[in-house]
């Protein structure tokens, strides 16, 4: 059986050329070693959830796998302690 030919259609490198430069975001927590991920820091964690309170994926935040895991855990803990909301509808009640 002949070897499979290299299919240009699925070449990721070429795709990148097609769709812009693909600027790679770097992980905020890797760049700034002083920056700690803490479930008590609601203001920091709000940057990693949408307005509706859902977690923002790694491809958007630019976090590395390790720090995204830390952020995810911190967000879940912060929700329990009411530092950040579970859902957006709850915000309305809090600001009555």
């Amino acid at each position: 059986m002949p070897k499979k030919k290299f299919d240009k259609k699925f070449d990721k490198k070429n795709d990148k050329k097609k769709f812009g430069t693909g600027r790679k975001k770097s992980c905020r927590f890797c760049q700034d070693k002083e920056l700690r991920i803490d479930y008590k820091d609601g203001r920091l964690l709000l940057g990693f959830v949408t307005e509706r309170g859902r977690l923002v994926p790694r491809r958007i935040t630019g976090n590395c796998a390790f720090h995204q895991r830390e952020v995810t855990l911190a967000v879940k803990r912060a929700r329990i302690l009411a530092y950040i909301p579970f859902t957006a509808t709850q915000v309305r009640h809090a600001n009555f």
Partner: peptide, 16 residues
């Protein structure tokens, strides 16, 4: 301020 109401309370005193 709490992010959501707990036992109808909108504010809480945090202790660590």
């Amino acid at each position: 301020n709490l992010a959501y109401r707990i036992e109808k309370q909108a504010k809480g005193n945090y202790v660590f």
